[in-house]
Design a binder for these strands. Structure first.
Length: 415
DNA sequence: TGTCCACAGGAAATACGGGGGT
DNA sequence: ACCCCCGTATTTCCTGTGGACA
């Protein structure tokens, strides 16, 4: 038999891939690659499938007053990540502005995105930037001056001003100053009717507020529930249609993904990520998307999550993880105590030429590993033999070695 | 019943590091 | 260039605790 050339094999492979292509437009599998307008268009289709009906309805009745010249009160919205708060609000506010403008009512809305934690100063600064009342992150300017700038810029804005504060709880430090400005001071200084919309992941953020601000803040509340399986199915269907070639998905698979996703988080972004992963795997294997592919994708996503989390983690956390792994391997799967883990961690630091932290700090690292569910730990008393955490690894076995190898490599150690 | 282990985990002190002011 | 300030990371110090054991 004659040998096939590289060219032949390559051509074959490409031919094969073309015939079995699953993905038509991968941009629709990753929201980050879509521009805002596309996201909103996508969202509109989702809404048309009567998803988020109740929320839209409530939003509408909350803001309906604007069209009659009333002044609706502020609004607080909460819901977990991936429940579409930001997009829904953007969409809704755009629509509202359009409607109002058609009626000759002046409405302006701004989206203040605080998705990364930041101090009061930067939050105010970004707000000022939105109104072009200040240049890029200038420092060395007092809060007072910033506030005055904002007020002056808005001094001749009539009609309604809606400020959509995304992820309010990300204002650490001096949150009260920030909110006091928005809630108490700003409305009195500007002619426009101010409506604030706060969005947060946490249900209880108003609780930890300065009582003076809180009592002043008349709020309407709205909760975004996690998507259920039916909602997710609609969302996924639209993605499938846009992103994948026809007939690449086995029947029932979308239902499966929707059920999985609604069962353990109800997060639309994660559901789409699962679809994307499945599509990639299917394409690589040259098959359609089958239930088997989906469950493989689920595993890989889990795995990816751990690896990604750890890759970006601080060095000490990695070292703590490595130490814990070594301790529990030495203990042959039996739960290890804090002391054992700490010893192993110190030995690891020795090898890795890393300054070990104190036992106290190590305890905190363990707690952190616990919340990310790398480990599972509970405090157990052994009577006179003291109290310890019982630590077990909470990562699938085959991944433990991978993680350990990864960390070792980063510290430039042999296996 | 009291002791005492081996830690947990809170509070305060201290070290560190980056950025702006002078 | 140097210093100061501020926010964060880590350490030090400390009190608390469940239950086996004497």
């Amino acid at each position: 038999m004659e040998r096939r050339t590289v060219r032949d094999r390559m051509a074959d492979r490409i031919q094969h891939m073309l015939q079995h292509a699953v993905i038509k437009d991968r941009r629709f599998l990753d929201d980050e690659q879509l521009i805002r307008a596309e996201q909103l268009a996508l969202l509109e289709e989702v809404f048309n499938a009567s998803v988020r009906d109740t929320e839209i309805e409530e939003l509408s009745s909350h803001f309906a007053g604007i069209l009659r010249g009333d002044h609706p009160c502020h609004l607080a919205i909460w819901g977990k990540t991936g429940t579409g708060k930001t997009l829904t609000l953007s969409y809704f506010l755009n629509l509202l502005t359009e409607l109002a403008t058609a009626k000759g009512i002046q409405v302006r809305h701004e989206h203040l995105d605080l998705s990364t934690p930041q101090p009061c100063f930067r939050a105010l600064n970004s707000l000022a930037c939105l109104f072009k009342a200040s240049k890029r992150h200038r420092k060395g300017i007092s809060l007072e001056e910033l506030m005055v700038n904002i007020e002056e810029t808005l001094a001749d804005l009539a009609g309604y001003l809606i400020i959509f504060v995304d992820e309010v709880d990300n204002v650490r430090r001096d949150r009260d100053t920030f909110l006091k400005f928005l809630v108490r001071r700003l409305p009195q200084k500007i002619p426009a009717k101010l409506i604030l919309v706060f969005v947060s992941n946490r249900l209880n953020w108003p609780d930890q507020l300065d009582p003076r601000v809180k009592s002043f803040l008349k709020l309407n509340e709205l909760v975004f529930k996690p998507y259920d399986a039916v909602d997710l199915k609609h969302i996924l269907d639209i993605r499938v249609e846009k992103a994948l070639h026809s007939n690449t998905v086995e029947p029932g698979v979308i239902e499966q993904i929707a059920a999985l996703a609604s069962h353990d988080h109800g997060d639309a972004r994660k559901a789409v990520a699962l679809l994307a992963k499945s599509a990639y795997l299917a394409e690589k294997a040259g098959t359609r998307i089958t239930p088997a592919v989906v469950s493989e994708a689920t595993d890989e996503l889990h795995c990816d999550r751990y690896v990604a989390l750890l890759r970006t983690a601080p060095v000490q956390l990695k070292a703590a993880m490595a130490g814990t792994i070594e301790a529990s391997q030495r203990g042959k799967g039996r739960a290890v105590g804090t002391g054992e883990a700490y010893d192993a961690y110190r030995r690891f630091c020795d090898r890795a030429v890393l300054q070990p932290l104190s036992g106290r700090a190590f305890g905190d690292l363990l707690a952190e590993l616990d919340v990310h569910s790398f480990i599972r730990s509970r405090v157990v008393s052994h009577g006179r033999r003291g109290r310890t955490r019982e630590i077990t690894l909470d990562v699938p076995d085959e991944m433990i070695d991978r993680i350990h190898a990864m960390i070792s490599m980063e510290f430039d150690l042999r296996g």
